[in-house]
Write a protein that binds this DNA or RNA. Structure first.
Lengths: 217, 217
DNA sequence: GAGATATTAGCACGATCGTTCGTGCAGTTT
DNA sequence: AAACTGCACGAACGATCGTGCTAATATCTC
């Protein structure tokens, strides 16, 4: 039955772990998972080094927990809100818009957490790389699923290559984040907004589809 | 006058610096510029730590020299060979094809050096970030210039937004590299090849332009 | 040849890294 | 109240980090 934990000791342990991870995702989004040092986290949070260490057991486990925490934050900011939008083309567009806002609003201080960290680990075998690859596949599948619903509903051309289209959309999003962070300017987000619509319109059965109209406040 | 250096002492110094940088760009493309440690480079190359250090004067100068070395390797692999192709649309396509080959052939063992390292430093102010931002602008301008020549020659529609088009092309290239390295598969490169042609064709005055034909051996 | 100059080696420094260990304290269970 | 559980602390470990010194070793100038 052990639903919610009531043991005060475990509760406090989880609370400090959450505090550590809140800080960890911020640091990692700016400087990477390697720059996550246990001593630094301890100092920043007013804890002891061994206290932080004990909560995770190893550096790699801390890194993996940080990835999981970031995954949840990403899902809450981008994927979950899109569920309010009806399935299909409109939801696909909502995913893209949410993603741009997620990057632009710096949900993570260094821009997209996964852009930073995946580039860091993509060529290094190990558990961290595997976890990040899983997140990437998951996000890719989320976009493909939304596009598939749109195609089934007849909003996208039947011969649309969903994998290619999702790839293109993600490419535009990721590059907007990268350039915006690097050059500290807003232009990349504007380019991305235009290009996303073009990509979707090019595959839409009705290019004037209301579900592709730019947001007008 | 002082054209080529003849002083044997300086020559030997530059030679070891080159050896260090050759190793450094490889390490950095896989693990990042932070993972570049002076002691590790010394051990790998059979040199003394202070010997390596003396060649650069500081860790940051080593990082900057590594970026400059990578920039030259990139230019030699991607930009310079494209000069053999006539200016305009064909050259723009050559730049993209060369870039894909540069990533696919692992000119740097970790894939695109700049993808790895820019993600690492894009949110950290400093000389390294500035140098990387310069490289990014340079590459972006190279693509825009090629597209501008194509438009001037009438191969692209007059109302083409060159900045947006260059952004889209670069987005496709960068994402192909990222996904191919992360998942260790070839599919992203195939997607990229198709998408690059689609993007260019959509803006071309003659979509059947010979200069946009896929390479057929 | 001698003397100047530039590269490399050897050694030591303070700092920080991840990790281990023993201890004390807060909360739970009996 | 006693016994037990789990978190956090402080101290210490070996290793490695970047960075200074000094001395030895090449190479050039004269």
């Amino acid at each position: 039955m052990a639903g919610p934990i009531t043991d005060g000791r475990l509760l406090r342990g989880e609370e400090t772990r959450r505090a550590v991870l809140r800080r960890a995702v911020g640091i990692a989004s700016v400087e990477g998972l390697d720059a996550l040092s246990i001593g630094r986290l301890a100092t920043d949070l007013g804890l002891s080094k061994s206290g932080v260490f004990a909560g995770f057991g190893s550096k790699e486990e801390l890194q993996l927990a940080t990835v999981r925490a970031a995954r949840r934050i990403f899902a809450d900011a981008v994927v979950t809100p899109a569920a309010d939008t009806p399935p299909g083309l409109a939801r696909a567009r909502a995913l893209c818009e949410n993603w741009l806002a997620y990057s632009r609003d710096r949900v993570f201080p260094g821009g997209c957490f996964f852009h930073e960290v995946t580039a860091e680990f993509d060529a290094r075998p190990g558990a961290v790389r595997d976890a990040l690859a899983g997140c990437a596949r998951e996000w890719h599948a989320t976009v493909v699923d939304a596009l598939a619903e749109a195609r089934t509903a007849g909003a996208l051309r039947p011969d649309t290559d969903l994998g290619d289209l999702a790839f293109a959309l993600i490419a535009v999003l990721e590059t907007a984040n990268s350039q915006a962070v690097l050059h500290e300017e807003d232009v990349p987000y504007q380019r991305a907004g235009r290009l996303l619509l073009r990509l979707l319109r090019a595959e839409a059965t009705d290019p004037a589809d209301r579900r592709l109209a730019p947001d007008r406040a």
